[in-house]
Design a binder for these strands. Structure first.
Lengths: 356, 356
DNA sequence: GTGAAAGCGCTAACAG
DNA sequence: CTGTTAGCGCTTTCAC
């Protein structure tokens, strides 16, 4: 059956004004909070006309006239990853609560793509851009990203980075280093001897921060007398792979082959930890009994794995909300907000539990 | 430190044209795929100027001039729920691949809010709106939703519903009924006797479809001679709760109290199934050993729970992609695409496994 | 208070 | 092929 393709154009402000018998200006003023007030009689007529014509303001036109949209542009690495979904959820909710729309793009963890996305987002003239995800070690692409973001701010936009500090913009930073350090300290003193770290891609700062924090906390706890951590962490192997379940699985296999069975596996991500557990079982090693496993993030949908995964909880949604807050109430100066991490010990590291 | 708040306005097409020494039209034509071609010399000059001025086209202005944006508006119930995240991921990826932006709103599972969101999305003049989530039984709010969507189409927009058929728009429907029916048949013949269903809110069609499909499949398998399923399903209790892990937990508790221990628990959602398993354990009943449990969706991050959850897999991402496809290549007539469901038997229903 | 009119940045006839 | 020009729908001075 052919669809009703009337293409009746949407009612415009013109239409409303004409229908109400007032000027364009008056209609505009009553239909959106202008500073000036309109006589009640006209107001009512305009409102009635708008209702009757089912008028919806053309946001694009408004944006063109005003020079900026009431929108926040979100860039995440992967919306399918619960870590990002949680943060994005916070951003979207806060944006809607603040009367703003949200547009979203996915970079697929590609830094180049991230730069591209910022560039095209700029065309949307959003009030702000929230860039969520790990920064990378590559200085060249970071420089290009910074240029794009600077340009956006020069145009009057507001940039907020969510994840870690380092670039000259407002940022919400999760305390990866301190969280990993605390986790390591807790587990080191609980009695585990040989640890191994399953890290993400080397270029990702988030992976580095977590791995380094862990190594540092581990070294300090094991050799409290020593000053520098470097000598002492040499005995904790670090294996790199992707930031996914599959990555954890793969890294665990490699780790077992290259370094034998450890007492404790620290995966820099819950997703990786779960992959690692699967790989361990496949090798006949039972996580939580034969070997301890810890992750990072405290992903909600992963809280039901067995054994319960020891991890570090991050206030992800809160981070998203805070980012929008910064956009809504922009201050004159660059601000940095550190969000705390909290160690959560569960049965995957039984010695840690007893050590409570 | 005070921020560099120069507010240098972004370069406009005017600026580029002037800088390149060509007309506005020429600049416009080279900078965005117009049908017409531009002499190579001018082309180069314009491109260079654009590069030099760091020009980014004002998408709002383009939209105003063209009458429509190159955007798809997404409405989901909850981006934090992996079910929706997966679908949204498909939509966003497909949109970007098709050169479109994506704007996203979250309804929080509130049908009223959904209507509101469609209404304000209309203001964005997106090429299409993809409405993802269960339809509801409430006729009044459904009528209002339909009105909004019709208006949007009358204005030249394109509506795609993802989840189930029933409204007069293009839709991508997951085969909930058939999937649940197949699951029930498989498990009923595997030897389970007393079943119980943990359903979502009664008004949600998705919950109904899955519960009804299960009851039907169960009845047919148990009493193949009978024609009507109604008499025969009376012995399978249905308990309702929220569409979340907490909902599953709560419903399971109530089910145990009201109906005693079943042989098989079917939760209409993996999330609910996992909550139910937790509640069972708390009651000293071990899922997969003392009682069988099955879910629906085959959520990726839930594939690592123990025992492995028997469930029905839905091509979620594919559904999102198909929706965008419909927007990109709109046909004249209303189309309905049914996406198949696939039963996945794991250790949470051991009899089902053996029965392979 | 109200309305006329000049933009906002871009597109798309239309004429050369 | 190029340039001129009239819009797109809305905001916002600026007179009244």
């Amino acid at each position: 059956m052919a669809r009703d393709d009337a293409r009746r154009p949407p009612a415009t402000l013109q239409d409303v004004a004409r229908d109400a018998g007032v000027s364009l200006a008056t209609a505009s003023r009553t239909l959106n909070g202008s500073a000036r007030r309109v006589k009640e009689e006209y107001r009512a007529r305009v409102l009635a006309a708008a209702e009757r014509l089912n008028y919806a303001p053309n946001l694009q036109a408004q944006a063109v006239a005003r020079g900026r949209t009431n929108t926040v542009g979100i860039i995440v690495s992967d919306i399918t990853d619960p870590y990002f979904a949680q943060i994005a959820g916070g951003i979207i909710a806060a944006a809607e609560a603040g009367g703003m729309g949200a547009s979203i793009s996915v970079s697929g963890r590609d830094p180049e793509r991230e730069v591209q996305l910022v560039s095209s987002l700029r065309g949307l003239r959003p009030a702000g851009i929230v860039l969520v995800g790990s920064r990378v070690t590559d200085a060249a692409v970071t420089a290009r990203l910074e240029t794009q973001l600077r340009d956006f701010e020069a145009e009057g936009g507001h940039v907020v980075l969510v994840t870690q500090a380092g670039l000259p913009f407002d940022t919400i930073a999760f305390d990866n280093v301190e969280g990993a350090r605390a986790l390591a300290a807790r587990l080191a003193t609980a009695g585990y001897a040989r640890a191994i770290v399953l890290a993400g891609p080397e270029r990702l700062m988030t992976s580095r921060e977590r791995a380094d924090g862990f190594l540092e906390g581990w070294a300090v706890a094991k050799h409290p007398a020593d000053a520098g951590p470097f000598e002492d962490t040499l005995d904790v192997p670090v294996v790199h792979s992707e930031f996914t379940r599959a990555g954890g699985y793969e890294a665990m296999g490699r780790a077992l082959a290259d370094h034998g069975r450890p007492d404790l596996v620290f995966a820099v991500t819950d997703l990786m930890a779960v992959g690692a557990m699967a790989r361990l079982r496949e090798a006949g090693i039972e996580p939580g009994r034969d070997v301890a496993v810890a992750g990072f993030d405290d992903i909600e949908t992963l809280r039901d794995v067995t054994p319960g995964l020891t991890t570090v909880r991050l206030p992800l949604e809160q981070g998203g909300i805070a980012a929008v807050d910064l956009i809504l109430h922009r201050t004159g100066s660059q601000s940095l907000m550190r969000l705390p991490a909290e160690v959560v010990v569960r049965e995957s590291t039984p010695a840690g539990v007893e050590h409570e």
